[in-house]
Nucleic acid binder design. Sequence first.
DNA 1: ACTCGTATCCGAAACGTTTTGGAGGATAAT
DNA 2: ATTATCCTCCAAAACGTTTCGGATACGAGT
Lengths: 338, 338
Amino acid sequence: MATIRDVAKRAGVSVTTVSRALNGYSDVNEKTRERIKEIAKELKYSPNLLARSLVMKKTKTIGLLVSGLKIEGSKDNFTYEVLCGVNDCAGQLGYELVLISTDSQKQQEKTYKQLVQERKVEGIILQGIKTDDPYLEEVLKSDTPCILIDIPMESDSVGYVTTDNREGAKSAVTHLLDLGHQHIGMINGHSQAFVSQERLDGYQDALQEKGITFEESYVRNGAFLEERAETEATKLLQEHPELTALFCASDLMAMGAIRAAKKLGRKLPEELSVVGFDNIILSAYSTPSLTTIAQDRYQLGFEATKLLTGMLEGNMDSKKKILNTAFIKRESTCENHT
Amino acid sequence: MATIRDVAKRAGVSVTTVSRALNGYSDVNEKTRERIKEIAKELKYSPNLLARSLVMKKTKTIGLLVSGLKIEGSKDNFTYEVLCGVNDCAGQLGYELVLISTDSQKQQEKTYKQLVQERKVEGIILQGIKTDDPYLEEVLKSDTPCILIDIPMESDSVGYVTTDNREGAKSAVTHLLDLGHQHIGMINGHSQAFVSQERLDGYQDALQEKGITFEESYVRNGAFLEERAETEATKLLQEHPELTALFCASDLMAMGAIRAAKKLGRKLPEELSVVGFDNIILSAYSTPSLTTIAQDRYQLGFEATKLLTGMLEGNMDSKKKILNTAFIKRESTCENHT
DNA sequence: ACTCGTATCCGAAACGTTTTGGAGGATAAT
DNA sequence: ATTATCCTCCAAAACGTTTCGGATACGAGT
């Protein structure tokens, strides 16, 4: 591995000149710059990024910290698609990406601050972290730039990117109302996610707009889990036979709800309309296919990275970004026939 | 950020002593070691890994190089699950993980060697690379340790981990034969993947064992793509009405094949049995659910990392690992009724 | 008294860069 | 002739570690 010294020696100049030549400084003769470039290529020289980072105190590296990078994530692919977006954007902008995953286990051992400092990331993107996570307040105090995904919190050094969950949920429920459904249940996610509250708000917005009173007992906590949603939906449908439609805060929970309905002998969608949220792959393949609110997870990651690098490079036009949802009509919803 | 010098000054010793104390060398008095540790904690000292790596020439970092980290990967989740396995194993062993993604675009600009050297990874895992990829021969020549996923090639510094595709395919086809199917078509993957050849071999093994002659025209190239598989399956089924079963080299292609069959008016599984390969999430949710050969992608990543770190630390008991498949019976196959 | 071993510590070099603050010479301006 | 201004270049310091080769002191063995 050729070092800068080798190039300098071969070119008969100092290391300073090589450094400045290769980095495009103007105080080096074009003639010698060309010669140095030539020799560098010849020697297959490529600068040692460790040494560079050490002296420059810049690593050109961002971290993606994900809480719970588990195999179960395969079902909704949230993390994977965010990762793709982050990776693409980081690649385009010349940043390296290191993946950091934590769980409550590891959080005992290392504080957020230590993690960030050790890994030598300039900035970090947080994905999958819950609102009661101890890291969260550390993040807000810390002064290393950070972008939160789906957690609308800000400070001097932290911003966020999220989807317009409220509007999305509202359009889902409005769709059901437009189909003539009067009694609409909701399977929500757990309360350790901001999006749960937002989607509940959207649900209520839609009801209110049509002058329908909100029924507390119509909404249950499915914890974003398929099985949990199934049992909750079963109970909900049994306790409230008047329900003709369900809005689920995630497609995965919608899957669970649909299974519950099927087991209860309901015909879908004629006897129960279901709309989900997320537009995961599964929702297009299941039977019936799922009407849902699409959110662009790839874009979420991409924008997060754009925001983060923006902060790192000082162009802080904005520290937050809210993406729109898209309504997707499929087979799981139809007019109310009761 | 406290440096080792700060600790040394505070403790009234040299940096050497601090370094050796913290790193557990024996030539430092236990009393002073304790004192130093105390002070280090007090100052929240944590060593600068850049500096350490620079002098030690060890980064404790491995790279996961994936070719085509694209959103389409959501459908089979192969990369995501491998990633989970790699991440978990790397985390357990104290290695950092950097994600590197390439495409033919980027490969023009940087050679494999440059990539590895610049990113300062000690070893690398390759996922999703095709057999005609120019990087492949570079890998084999290079002397940085590397583990290939699903490419059975070896050299001094490279090993691989894969699944027993041949045996898996054989058991899939044997299952169909046992159900009384005599004419079994195959939708294979493209030839730029080793697994395609292996799965074809397994298909032939099964036929041979039952004394059925192999019919060249029964196997088509679906290129691991759902749509492509659909068109190929359509043609295949039309040209060979005698076929009562299909073996597909991936679940995704099986989805395409099933759609093709449905469009041709075939009842599934009564009029066509289909078995896939992979056991992706979708296969359990589709209608009919898919009989398939499961391969453990998480384990693939985990074992790859174990092998790689083994090589890095000199315990080279083995440089390759072959995982077993598991047969999973679902709804898409049944007895031949013709 | 001399040597030897052992326990404990330290100075300085090394890793490969970037950057600071000039030096030297040539040319232009006064 | 002197000064100022460019244009090129460079030596040395700095980044924060680890490690090599001693150095010092003390007690034991002879």
